[in-house]
Design a protein around this nucleic acid. Structure first.
Lengths: 334, 334
DNA sequence: AAGGATATCCAAAACGTTTTGGAAACCCCG
DNA sequence: CGGGGTTTCCAAAACGTTTTGGATATCCTT
């Protein structure tokens, strides 16, 4: 039904070769024939078939965007959406299409994610929302399909990653609290399975060392990134270590949970307890007091991942592990 | 480089026809040859080329997900992400791939969104985040490419839509506030360009009529969906109409803005001023007091849109305008 | 005028599948 | 044993492009 290159060729009285070359801007077609062909193509409303082109060129110019679990992932909406936007926009600029893939889908089709991508001839994959203990991790790392993982330090011959420099982020937070005069700084971490947790703990420790404070194990509580977990973290820390005057939470949600609990217990924030979070979610500006936090550049992460992947594909650049600088955003809470 | 059906055929000593038919479960291949072919395909790790298949079948099994403006859309993250998840998951279940398209991309490629989709031979499109005054609207409605629009009542031969029943949502809110004893109920609407605004205003009016309250124009303020806009709405309404004891906001963000302003001015919520929002964003449970709101079933919207589109494609069902029932979620604020 | 370069065009192969229209081979039945 | 049916297979066409390897015509140059 749709008009093909053959239709254009016949209407113009030339071969399809010539039409193809005219349309693609090759040199060996005379100015008038080119003009005539362009006009006719326009008049017939000809649109080249991307599928046929992909087949013969052996290039789909499509990359897969693998999201670990679309339906499930309630938390991290903001994070994912921004990264996704960054990935998409940059890839589009670079002339690539992006197709969505979810691990759940691949599973229900009884085909590995890699096979899924292979069948569609994706040229590369960007992976997000995956966790350290995810069985897909192996597949991603070992697969010959070029990939870039977001927020997980996976590096191999065909797999790079980009994530926020969580160590420095945590250090920023600690240093800031120290500069505000705090000498007993607690830390409520997320769950250990998250790749970022180890880094943030390490940054916390290094931050203390940098400013000359001792590391006190009882000042660290391992929680779960949730609102309730933050509240609980606050309580545990206050109980084990009543002198604490500042708490650094490994997520904004926990920080808000902790802060609310502190306020409910009659503490003033930041006067009695300073609070710093991590992520810079929208919510940080809407709570009261507004939340000081360590911001991640989410859109940038997506852009960076896209650029790294295309670099690997088009310029054969080696995959890297790229750390994006976090940003301390000082607001009212500490 | 990758192994083709020809490789499998040669290894099995049969024609490619037979391999194709064996792999696709046709009847006219003997049990042993089929078994042998499957084994060999497995051993060679053969993956059928989706592109070639699409070309010959003239079916890409791919639908485009058109998001009006990826980079820009800061507001509506939650909304978009949930809808997107619903669309994706359902389409995946139904055996379709989904490819992302942004209006900005199409523009920068100097090709209309329709041409973009045509070149890629998308079988249909789901459109979201588009506004009434968007120039793309015409293209979408008039295009022969089957489409389903989310949150905009666009109906034509090839274009259906699905949105929340905003009229009833607003009516629910008004009725609820009336039942709580309020007799002077204000309304802060979003900007007029949003398709939902007219409906919510209409629902507000109908709600008043239903419970027997008079419509008072000075009790309506047109704002912009933002936090600050909500605060301003609160002020305007209080000023023009001091008796107001309840305000219904056309978005949660505005409701929270208004509520904060009310609290800051010494009012108690809900005692002095009851507040109801719209959307049921995550934030509603985190503010204090928690926000009563009209919830939209975002994931469901995506699922419904996906199903309608596939119905149009596969069963030739006519496009419809489908309204999803909203849900009143009563919390502390009113 | 011959020879070479250049400009313009095209036929055919290729990409990796599916599908169409048989062709063999075998079986069963009268 | 002949004829119809069934089973199992395959060659070739088709899908809509790009690209390769010329072919023809035109234009210079000497």
């Amino acid at each position: 039904m749709p008009v093909t290159i053959r239709d254009v060729a016949e209407a113009a009285g030339v071969s399809i070769t010539t039409v193809s070359r005219a349309l693609n801007g090759y040199a060996d077609v005379s100015p008038d024939t080119r003009k005539r062909i362009l006009e006719i193509a326009e008049r017939l409303n000809y649109r080249p078939n991307h599928v046929a082109r992909s087949l013969v060129r052996k290039r789909t110019q499509t990359i897969g965007l693998l999201v670990s679990d679309f339906g499930k992932s309630r938390t991290g909406h903001h994070f994912m959406f921004d990264v996704l936007a960054g990935v998409y926009e940059r890839l589009a600029e670079l002339g690539y299409d992006v197709s969505l893939v979810s691990t759940t889908t691949a599973q229900q089709h009884l085909v590995s994610y890699l096979d899924f991508c292979t069948e569609r001839r994706f040229e590369g994959v960007i992976v997000m929302g995956i966790r350290v203990d995810d069985p897909y991790v192996h597949e991603v790392v070992e697969s010959p399909l070029p990939s870039v993982v977001i927020d997980l330090p996976l590096l191999s011959d065909h797999c790079g990653y980009v994530m926020t420099d969580n160590i420095n982020g945590a250090k920023f937070a600690v240093r800031h609290l120290f500069q505000q005069g705090h000498r007993h700084i607690g830390f409520v971490n997320g769950y250990a399975q998250a790749a970022v947790s180890a880094d943030r703990l390490r940054g916390y420790k290094e931050g203390l060392r940098t400013v000359g404070l001792p590391f006190e194990p009882s000042l660290v509580y391992e929680s779960d990134f949730s609102l309730a977990g933050g509240a609980q973290g606050f309580h545990e820390l206050r109980q084990c270590y009543p002198d604490v005057t500042a708490i650094f939470f490994a997520s904004d949600l926990m920080a808000i949970g902790g802060m609310r609990e502190a306020l409910a217990n009659g503490l003033r924030v930041p006067d009695d307890l300073a609070v710093v979070g991590f992520d810079n979610i929208d919510l940080t500006e809407l709570v009261s007091p507004t939340l000081t936090t360590v911001g991640q550049h989410r859109y940038e992460m997506g852009v960076t991942a896209a650029e790294m992947l295309i670099g690997m594909l088009e310029r054969n650049e080696p995959p890297q592990g790229r750390l994006l600088a976090p940003e301390l955003i000082v607001r009212e809470s500490g």
